[in-house]
Design a protein around this nucleic acid. Structure first.
Lengths: 357, 357
DNA sequence: CTGAAAGCGCTTACAG
DNA sequence: CTGAAAGCGCTTACAG
């Protein structure tokens, strides 16, 4: 009887009471210190990379830690060190494989540097509501990736003293660093290709008018075309999406002077254009219509599209972003800079008649 | 002279020393309290949802906070409350649009509940190295999404008292909750479709043999086929990837008794199969080969594929995962459970001859 | 409704 | 090389 009650009480304790409150507060450095017969300071030193601790003390502490399943509390460490090792990563448009890729690379690179990513999936319109949350976690830096995200977040973080870097986008404000592909040059390579292939009637499909990437691609495309004595004869806005691209493609392809070649400001619009051209206009790609995209995302490589596209080198972009963010601020805060990553045209069958075909 | 030195010292301070050290330590509740003429306790209460504070005190505090740009320190709050409002989100395979979508939905849902996502992009083979990091941040819960991720992470977190939920995968251990689509039923719907369309030679392309999703889909497919007196006449393993799917498709399509219809355990393998069938075997889809996939990811909807696929309802899956994770643990810790979300076949032209065609 | 005080789990000069 | 002590910025019973 007595035993039964005792067992009940234990069960009660370990569920109702402990579960939310005491459970998460696991063993701490005190427990380890006691078991190892040292002070908390020493435990802390053993778990700190460059700190002094004799080999045998270290070993004793480690053994005790193992035994207790001790795992240092990064939250407490963050508070104490005034550094969280947390990087805010803000992305929109995860449905665009290019941004999914960027996020993946950034995540991996951060982990390699033992930093953790605090992810915020931004609804472009509601992005600014995230600002207090990002700020409150005292992240050591912020990476904002997405063509259409507001720049208010960047400015607020910056003025709160948090390093910020924009990826694939820049702002008018010269306070904010960013890493972008060389959109002008990349688009120029497409223009050159079109010119060399002998296309005369040329279309351009813009993304979002407010996106620097779209504007730069259009600019680079036009000036290089001009070098060859060519110009854009049809222009539509496709908003960087599949649906927008499809609409824009319809508008472009039903014109009497239908283009022979279209350059779309990203791959999603380019694949949509190919789809519409084939299914609604019965056009062959590239014989009746050549299409080029931008990003060289996973879509471009699919055999059903074989899309000529400009590769942005997401790995390099991510690396440059981290470097910019984490550069030891020696002396004065370095001025904001725009890092431009070279882009490279990748030719596929959507613009080129392959011998094998 | 004296002034010059003084100025130099200030400049020195505000760059070399302060930049990393003092900058991030922004105004705190003490500053606000002083300006508002109240105690830190009161400031804290004003910023706590259900806490007592008179209207006028509240207003005074808020005004002071605004003036100073005060933003409560979530790290300090976490330490003090023994709760971080951080949810560890572990994903692999972000190159699969289905998982990118899952991540997006989870991110948005977490934000709605004022939780932040601590993201870890897992290299399946190196996943276990993340365990200490996840544990150290004292996350309030962990969501693991990915067919191929090790279950060690889940077990370690669970035994550390952190609620865990697996998405799109379950383990043999009945300690761990998970949310999965109804793979058996979903695959059964594909079997029924194939049977009704009159296909006799039927292929199945597995994902990874160790993934519960792949096994369940195969199982559900086979038993429903059997109901119709049919069976799988060709089986290959495509590892859930484009490349693996392409290899498996080649193996399957060069057989003398080439299948009339293939069910692939995910969309990526299915699109690869369509690509290979068309380009290397000159087959028409669906006249010469019907193909169905699983996930109904963004790939399935692309016009170049028009892939019949089983929709997993990522929104519902994400909601169920959060609910399971965050359910108030009333009384005893609820036993681990497997939540099964209904799946729905979406027919497209890859299996159906449309009238318009 | 409000304040003083203790505590969350670390780190880090400062002595020794 | 190691320990005692103060501090990081909050929250929260406990009095009042």
């Amino acid at each position: 009887m007595c035993r039964l009650v005792f067992v009940d009480a234990r069960a009660y304790n370990s569920t109702n009471i402990n579960i939310r409150k005491s459970m998460p507060s696991r063993t701490n450095s005190n427990d380890v210190a006691r078991l190892a017969g040292v002070s908390r300071s020493t435990v802390s030193r053993v778990f700190t990379d460059g700190a002094y601790a004799s080999a045998e003390t270290s070993e004793r502490v480690m053994k005790a830690a193992d035994q207790l399943g001790y795992c240092p509390n990064a939250i407490a460490r963050s508070l104490s060190m005034n550094r969280t090792s947390l990087i805010g990563v803000i992305v929109g448009e995860l449905d665009n494989p290019f941004y999914a890729d960027i996020l993946q690379v950034i995540g991996v690179k951060l982990q390699q540097r033992r930093l953790a990513s605090l992810l915020f999936v931004a609804n472009p319109s509601a992005m600014d509501t995230l600002i207090p949350q990002v700020l409150s976690y005292r992240v050591d830096g912020v990476i904002i990736s997405g063509a259409t995200l507001s720049s208010k977040m960047a400015l607020r973080c910056q003025s709160a003293g948090i390093p910020v870097v924009l990826v694939n986008r820049y702002t008018d404000s010269d306070l904010i660093s960013s890493v972008v592909g060389d959109n002008v040059d990349g688009a120029g390579q497409v223009a050159r290709l079109f010119a060399e292939r002998g296309y005369r009637r040329i279309g351009f499909m813009a993304g979002l008018p407010e996106a620097s990437s779209s504007r730069d691609r259009e600019h680079g495309f036009r000036i290089k075309l001009a070098d060859f004595g060519l110009s854009v004869s049809a222009r539509e806005v496709g908003s960087f999406t599949l649906e927008g691209g499809a609409r824009a493609a319809r508008a472009m392809l039903c014109r009497p002077d239908r283009p022979e070649a279209v350059f779309c400001a990203n791959d999603m619009m380019a694949t949509a254009t190919i789809d519409i051209a084939r299914t609604e206009f019965n056009l062959r790609i590239p014989e009746d219509l050549a299409v080029a995209g931008y990003d060289n995302s996973s879509l471009a490589g699919m055999l059903a599209y074989q899309l000529t596209s400009v590769d942005q080198n997401t790995t390099l972009m991510a690396e440059a972003a981290l470097e910019n963010l984490l550069q030891p601020s020696l002396g004065a805060k370095p001025p904001a800079q725009v890092v431009r990553i070279p882009s490279k045209l990748v030719e596929r069958a959507s613009t080129t008649l392959l011998a094998a075909n």
